[in-house]
Design a protein around this nucleic acid. Structure first.
Length: 199
DNA sequence: GCAATGATTTACT
DNA sequence: GTAAATCATTGCC
């Protein structure tokens, strides 16, 4: 079943990022459903420099981060990659979680079509830009509520043990100085779809 | 109006 | 390992 709004609207974005591991992320694009298990996330908060909304700086791009938790924040990076984030916390507080990798489950054939030929199936969704392409996520989904039938997250009922979760520093935010060292990246230990070496 | 750059991926050497 | 691809957003003039 879909996660309730109350799951996203709690105040501890780091805790929510950890809890998203093992959940199912689905999209429905042009009637085609694709989805997979979230295996890698990163937390971002307005309080630290790695975040687009650092120091509460609100712009046209990141405005959705200031909305209430439970919305999708999608933006374009490097001119070609869409990044998918989950907005958390209460309205007015800009926290969000970047989904960096999923394990393909639903609509795998469609994902392969969208991604083209790959050297390894583990490259299908093993990175933030890859999974958005595989799931058909683009900026049209920015600001969408994660409770409807375009993009949503479900609780599978499965539970990850603490020793199955790997904690590390976030990737690609060297400009954030000391905040780049925060242990706010979570991944499923041993999962082949975690970004990095895709196979 | 304009120059700078990024929460990345892929190909090439 | 290094570099190119590629453009919306941002900040400054």
């Amino acid at each position: 079943m879909k996660l309730a709004e109350s799951f996203y609207q709690r105040s501890d974005v780091v805790k929510i990022a950890r809890e998203l591991l093992g959940k199912m992320l689905y999209t429905r694009i042009n009637g085609v459903i694709t989805g997979g298990i979230i295996v890698e996330t990163e937390a971002y908060s307005w309080k630290e420099k790695g975040c687009h909304a650092y120091a509460g700086r609100k712009t046209k791009r990141n405005a959705v981060m200031f909305e209430k938790g439970g919305l999708a924040y999608v933006y374009l990076c490097y001119g070609m990659h869409n990044m998918f984030n989950v907005v958390t916390n209460a309205e007015g507080i800009a926290d969000a979680i970047l989904v960096r990798a999923i394990e393909p489950v639903e609509g795998v054939a469609e994902m392969q079509l969208r991604r083209g030929m790959l050297q390894s199936p583990f490259q299908l969704t093993s990175g933030p830009g890859k999974l958005t392409r595989a799931l058909g996520i683009d900026r049209n989904l920015n600001g969408k509520v994660l409770l409807h039938n375009e993009v949503w997250i479900e609780d599978t009922g499965g539970k990850l043990k603490g020793n199955q979760i790997e904690v590390s520093s976030r990737i690609g935010i060297d400009y954030a100085g000391n905040d780049a060292k925060l242990p706010w990246r979570f991944s499923v230990k041993g999962n082949r779809w975690v970004s990095g070496r895709g196979g």
